[in-house]
Nucleic acid binder design. Structure first.
Length: 263
DNA sequence: ATGGTAGCGCTGCTA
């Protein structure tokens, strides 16, 4: 089973690229983030035409998450089961059962500035994610939590840690909150299969030619429970999908993260 | 050089 997570930065703007990527890479389950559309505008028919079921949770201009599957799609839950008041109201998590795996598509808040109310909300959201897992699944089952975490787990997951002094995505509280999520019993499977290298990065700023300068970050993750992590045959970032700046159809600023699982 | 790009949508916010 091929499981993919991809922050598409507007599904409307990216649909041709997403369709093309599906045709070329034949994913079984795709976790999408930043669809930037309302449920009524979600292009479900485009996925149906390709042989996929889909579910979406979005309310308009920002955020929005989706799950697309050709191996079944049931038990869909939009949002947190028990949303705390400080994390309610944004469409950032969607979960479902696909091919025997409980999958979560997550879009962690960016945090904006360290110390801001948005930064506090990001830490709170990650805490809520851990509680969601505790309440809705078991680490002994096949569970995958994939998405844009907006946290670089280690210093080597950014191009130059010196450039991040005082900035979000690399602070210890963010990393500690991510570790709390993983403490549920989840393994970062790209890191599992790439134990010694920097990155591989999954996001590059649109500005300043960051992609071509290698100035990226690894913030899109697939976290798997132990039974699922044991099935990982490959885990990689498709950098090709980040290319094509200046062409008619722009790429997302994120590349797909691909995980291949044995039956 | 306090910039830059992309998306949404029409003014400025978000990333």
């Amino acid at each position: 089973m091929r499981l993919v997570t991809w922050n598409v930065n507007s599904l409307k703007a990216r649909l041709p690229r997403v369709e093309g990527w599906i045709a070329e890479h034949a994913p079984d389950v795709m976790l999408l983030q930043e669809t930037k559309c309302a449920d009524a505008a979600f292009p479900a028919a485009a996925f149906t035409a390709l042989g996929y079921e889909s579910a979406h949770y979005g309310d308009g201009r920002w955020n929005g998450v989706a799950i697309v599957s050709r191996v079944g799609l049931g038990g869909v839950r939009a949002g947190f089961e028990d949303a705390a008041p400080d994390v309610a109201g944004e469409c950032r998590i969607l979960s479902a059962d696909c091919g025997g795996v409980r999958v979560y598509s997550v879009y962690v808040p960016n945090g904006r500035e360290v110390g801001s109310e948005f930064y506090a909300a990001k830490l709170s959201w990650l805490g809520q994610l851990r509680r969601e897992l505790d309440a809705t699944c078991e680490p002994s089952a096949a569970v995958a939590v994939g998405g844009d975490f907006n946290v670089a787990p280690e210093d080597r997951d950014v191009w130059d840690i010196g450039a991040f002094a005082g900035l979000t995505h690399v602070t210890e509280p963010e990393r500690a909150a991510l570790r709390e999520v993983m403490g549920f019993g989840l393994t970062d499977v790209v890191r599992l299969l790439h134990p010694a290298e920097a990155g591989p990065f999954s996001w590059w700023d649109y500005r300043g030619g960051a992609f071509h300068k290698g100035e990226g970050m690894r913030i899109d993750l697939v976290l798997a429970s132990a039974p699922l992590a044991a099935r990982v045959e490959a885990a990689f970032v498709d950098r090709e999908a980040r290319k094509g700046q200046g062409t008619e159809r722009q790429p997302s600023d994120h590349a797909p993260v691909v995980v291949d699982l044995s039956p």
